[in-house]
Design a protein around this nucleic acid. Sequence first.
RNA 1: CGGGGUGUAGUAUAUCGGUAGUAUCUAUGUUUUGGGAACAUAAGGGCCGGGUUCGAUUCCCGGCACCCCGACCA
Length: 420
Amino acid sequence: MKQSNLFTKTKKESPADEVSLNAELLIKAGFINKEMAGVYSYLPLGLRVIKKIENIIREEMNAIGGQEVTLSALQEKSTWEPTNQWDDDQVDVWFKTKLKNDTELGLAVTHEAAITKMMKSFIQSYRDLPKYVYQFQTKFRNETRAKSGIMRCREFVMKDLYSFCKDEKEHLEFYEKSKEAYKNIFKRTGIGHLTYITFASGGIFSKFSHEFQTITATGEDTIYVDENKGIAVNKEVYNDEVLESLDIKKEDLVENKAVEVGNIFTLSTRFSDALGLKYKTEEGEEKSVFMGSYGIGPGRLMGTVVEVLSDDKGIIWPESIAPFKVHLLVLGEDNNVKESAENLYKDLSRKNIEVLFDDRTGMSAGEKFADSDLIGIPYRIVVSKRSLADGGFEVKKRSEQTGKIIAIEELISILLEPSN
RNA sequence: CGGGGUGUAGUAUAUCGGUAGUAUCUAUGUUUUGGGAACAUAAGGGCCGGGUUCGAUUCCCGGCACCCCGACCA
């Protein structure tokens, strides 16, 4: 893509109404736009990142048997009444609205009940189980206080997967698989080294749920990390009894602030009982479907990556989710230089290498460099009189301080190496 | 929801009970071009409503919006 065609612009000044690093950098670099407190639009660069994150999640969900759907955002009151989750004194984050005929509706806070209801149409027999269904879908939550940039929004997309199993045993097999899938997701999106599976409160039907917590000073949660075991305990369940049951020693734990980037939990038969999602066993017995729920917010994940992987100049995207692989900068107005850059842009594009081509004219070199650092694309290639005189193009990784001049053949072979 | 704070050009900020200044951005021109270039010219502003006052962007009240701390996050 030619940067001269990109409608977004970078900003020099940090927004006055954002304190969080993720929002500050993403807004300055033109990835997102703030519409109101807790509500953000995704711009071309930001959407490319989100789509890449979604694709990684999608691949991992498909790998463990997930089937993608999209459920509606409008939900009926009757969907949530059986589990007593419609009343505002039970769930206080509802956005509610009405049809013209006064029928009450809610904007989806989550989809456990809705999907349980839907699956009644398709699950009747043990032969229909297990099934795993997921979506990327917008949730609306009327948070009393939106905060931390895109980390806690009133409108946000969530990947939510729901598992439907015959019994707890079958459920736990999948539950373990989902942990591995989640680990893969965080590893592939570049925050695996800072992300710990964390024991958290499990609600009524299971002792624990599992959160995936990424260590960062700006996190909302406090967790206790056992580095050797690679696991953590959320402060909300941190006590002697829990530590003993998990065989964790207090002295091995280090307290950290962290952000919850994923959460998996066992629902058991809470929703299937309430909504009547049952199946016939081989013996002809009627049983409730055993369910689980598995969430990740791609937007929050993106914000976390920015929080964790950035420096004083801007964002440092992991290759796997960067909006482009290469940021090609042409310096100066010399026609030979321009032509050389154009040709390189075409060559790389033909090889299906994603390039953001900074072909903007009338800009100083320093301004282009500053923009490039802010946007944070993994490879920066500079074409200038100097680089051509030195025999080619200057390549520098965003994560490194210095670059080197190389010829086009070598350049292409470097860029075609499989990433991550 | 409790507490605290802030609303001034597109953005970021300053001053002031009496003419609202600067930077950046935008437009035009000239000179620049390897780390946010220089000069010139131009355009652009007091959240909304009420009150006090000769006069309010400034003081007071209400509303709205935004930020921070805490609570909440099923």
